[in-house]
Design a protein around this nucleic acid. Structure first.
Lengths: 205, 205
DNA sequence: GGAAGCGGAGAACGAACGTTCTCACAGTTC
DNA sequence: GAACTGTGAGAACGTTCGTTCTCCGCTTCC
């Protein structure tokens, strides 16, 4: 009984490790080649995990896709929080574009997986569309918090979000990380304009 | 002989009309559902053109995809030129974002087809990647011309391009046209900042 | 009037997909 | 040692894809 409990525990731990390995591999393949271009048999070949075991760990390909996107979402949040280190200031807002620059310069960069997945499956797979919308919505909401903390008017937040989105697609298609630096320069101007007190703004004259 | 030449001419005209109809239908379906989600048989059913005739007019599905993208490229250029009416001024640059707003508010808006196609096929179909890159490159080059005509420094052009790209993906995912107006506001600030003479800029102090 | 060639409908092909099943074999339990 | 359980490799299933082929009715020309 003690041994069986022990065995069950290690099996569960093995399952978790296997699931993680599968999700990492799936993330890499889906991101690099596109979701529809990677079949379950390719995933089996790359992970060395048999189809039977794959389907014991995940009920369907779509569930793998969803978990990959959710893991990316958590990774993105970590990167953003590392960049802004908790609170919103002018420099922390700009640090987001430095984070983007580092990402774009990686040689396996192929754009934002959420944007790519939305273009590929957004119209046919409602769950994917929902995850993408939620991801982008949460980023915009976090930006709004940071902008408020920095003392800038709320209208700045969507502007910064649009710059980040545009930088991601531009860098992906152009194949260079230049767009991150251009977006950063634009963000600097927008932030400074938003922080500069205006006649009709809520700041002091 | 005269009749045969006549017949050949009408046949050629019919072929051209049929090709146009097929390309319009393919554009609508690919744009709405994604390219990989629309098979040749769906295209046959929607156009009423038999598979045999489809393959007589186009050598392959990929060639249809390419022609659809090239037609979209020409349509985009027309929309841009209508908005800027030839020359670049502050107002003409902003008119691009008004054009985007009108586009986003159409109920069949589903983002930029070039971005969507790139996410879906960019990694597996080199010709598609090439067309998308060329399309975005030409838009950036045209923006650079307009910015120069408006008397603003060259660094403004990629910033405006990034705003336009970001607005397209943001609007597509959010499902609202709001991003166009937000991008327009940001563009206004960036253009004014670029046109305002600075100490180290090339304008007068 | 009959032969010849066309174009349309849709079957057929080979490949790939997501998913399930078979089968042989290992380890565990009485 | 025999029955049971779970696993891996991979065949198999049903569907869908892009593309080609077959058949058949219609027109056209001698």
């Amino acid at each position: 009984m003690s041994e069986t409990r022990q065995r069950a525990a290690t099996e569960r731990a093995d399952d978790a490790a296997l699931r993680a390995k599968i999700l990492e591999t799936a993330d890499r393949l889906y991101y690099t080649l596109g979701i529809q271009a990677v079949g379950m048999d390719t995933l089996r070949a790359e992970t060395g995990v048999s189809l039977k075991r794959l389907y014991a760990l995940f009920p369907s390909k779509e569930s793998i896709v969803e978990e990959v996107l959710l893991a990316r979402h958590r990774m993105w949040n970590t990167l953003v929080e590392d960049a802004v280190t908790g609170t919103g200031t002018r420099e922390h807002l700009l640090a987001i574009y430095d984070m983007l620059a580092r990402w774009f310069d990686q040689d396996d960069f192929r754009g934002c997986m959420f944007i790519n997945s939305f273009g590929e499956l957004g119209a046919t797979t409602p769950r994917v569309a929902e995850i993408v919308r939620s991801h982008k919505g949460q980023f915009q909401a976090r930006l709004a918090e940071l902008v408020a903390e920095a003392g800038a008017p709320a209208s700045l937040a969507p502007q910064l979000a649009i710059l980040a989105e545009g930088a991601q697609t531009t860098a992906a298609i152009a194949g260079t990380g230049e767009a991150a630096r251009q977006a950063r320069e634009a963000a600097e101007i927008l932030i400074d304009a938003a922080l500069r007190p205006r006649e009709q703004a809520d700041g002091p004259a």
